[in-house]
Simulated scan of single mutants.
Amino acid sequence: MATPLPTGLTSGTYTIDASHSTASFVVRHAGISKVRGTIDIAAGTITVGEDLESTAVRAELDAASVNTGDENRDGHLKSADFWHAEEKPVWSFTSKNISVDGDAYVISGDLTINGVTKTVDLPTEFAGTAKDPFGNDRAGFEAEVEISRQEFGLTWNAALETGGFLVGDKVKIALDVSAISQN
């Protein structure tokens, strides 16, 4: 049986509006604080079918655009110690399927970071639709996922004198997406 689309969302192609969308992350630092940053969404398309089963999502993020508010840290994240941004500049997500879990939608797909691809489940909230002042039909989505950075080959770390490590393994990634209908 086909799962209906969320109320207000119509079938067609939507392009992610990078200037009104955000990809952010949070990781524990030294076990006592959190470092937050953003990465630019370089491109993305949501192809909405007649139902959830025929809907697909594809997005690309620019690893070299990392911004944590500290140029030295950003440079280290772009280096071979972490993201190899020169050699592997694109992070990508390609959906495999979309399902409903209570009030949330779950987009399952392949996430590629640092050249390593893993399947993740991305709990997603449909924020609704609106017509902007320029006549564009927009759809909004919010999603969060927690990943293990080690599973993506991001293993650089430093031991702390008091025990533990400088950089936590768990990374929370949050997406706030505004997409414009191309129909």
Rank of each mutant, 00 (worst) to 15 (best):
Ala2Trp: 03
Lys131Ser: 15
Gly163Val: 10
Thr45Ser: 14
Asp70Met: 06
Val177Glu: 02
His20Met: 10
Trp83Phe: 15
Asp176Tyr: 06
Ala80Cys: 07
Ile180Gln: 07
Val171Trp: 02
Leu61Cys: 05
Ala2Leu: 02
Pro133Gly: 03
Ala179Leu: 00
Gly135Pro: 01
Lys118His: 05
Ile39Thr: 08
Met1Trp: 09
Asp110Trp: 05
Tyr14Phe: 08
Ala59Arg: 09
Gly102Leu: 04
Val120Trp: 01
Thr155Met: 05
His29Gln: 08
Asp121Arg: 09
Leu122Asn: 07
Thr47Tyr: 09
Ala42Pro: 05
Ser21Lys: 08
Ser33Thr: 15
Leu154Thr: 07
Glu146Asn: 13
Leu166Thr: 12
Thr155Tyr: 09
Pro123Ala: 03
Ala23Met: 12
Ser181Pro: 06
Ala139Gln: 10
Leu77Met: 07
Asp121Pro: 03
Thr162Gln: 14
His20Thr: 12
His20Ile: 04
Glu144Trp: 10
Phe134Asn: 13
Ser21Gly: 06
Ile39Asp: 08
His76Ser: 05
Thr129Tyr: 03
Asp81Thr: 03
Lys172Leu: 13
Ser92His: 03
His84Met: 10
Ala80Phe: 03
Pro123Asp: 02
Ala127Gln: 13
Gly75Ala: 14
Ser65Arg: 08
Ala64Gly: 07
His84Ile: 01
Thr112His: 07
Ala174Arg: 11
Thr47Phe: 02
Val26Tyr: 08
Val48Trp: 03
Leu5Ser: 00
Leu52Thr: 03
Asp103Leu: 07
Asp51Ala: 13
Asp176Pro: 01
Ala174Pro: 01
Ser65Cys: 08
Ser54Asp: 09
Val90Ser: 12
Arg138Val: 13
Ile107Thr: 11
Ala80Val: 12
Thr15His: 14
Gly115Cys: 04
Leu166Tyr: 11
Val27Phe: 12
Glu144Arg: 12
Ile180Phe: 00
Ser24Tyr: 01
Glu86Gln: 15
Val100Thr: 13
Thr15Pro: 10
Glu87Leu: 09
Ala139Arg: 14
Ser178Ile: 11
Thr119Leu: 06
Thr68His: 04
Leu160Val: 05
Trp91Glu: 07
Pro89Asp: 08
Asp101Ala: 15
Arg28Asn: 13
His29Ile: 10
Thr129Pro: 09
Pro133Tyr: 03
His29Lys: 13
Thr119Pro: 02
Glu144Val: 10
Phe93Asp: 11
Glu146Gly: 02
Asp40Ile: 04
Leu160Arg: 11
Pro133Thr: 04
Glu53Gly: 11
Tyr105Trp: 15
Gly69Tyr: 07
Val35Met: 13
Asp176Asn: 10
Ser148Lys: 13
Ile41Lys: 02
Gly31Asp: 00
Ile98Gly: 12
Leu166Cys: 01
Arg73Glu: 01
Lys78Arg: 15
Thr45Cys: 13
Phe134Ala: 13
Gly8Val: 00
Gly37Pro: 05
Ser108Asp: 10
Asp62Lys: 14
Met1Phe: 10
Leu9Asp: 06
Leu111Ile: 03
Gln150Lys: 15
Ser178Gln: 14
Gly163Asp: 11
Ser99Glu: 12
Ala42Ile: 08
Asp70Trp: 05
Val167Ala: 08
Phe134Lys: 11
Gln150Ser: 15
Phe152Val: 04
Thr117Gly: 00
Lys131Ala: 12
Glu60Asn: 10
Ser24Ile: 09
Ile107Gly: 00
Thr162Met: 15
Gly12Pro: 06
Asn114Tyr: 07
Val145Tyr: 06
Ile173Met: 00
Lys96Phe: 05
Ala104Asp: 15
Asp132His: 03
Thr7Tyr: 06
Asp137Asn: 12
Ile113Val: 13
Thr10Lys: 14
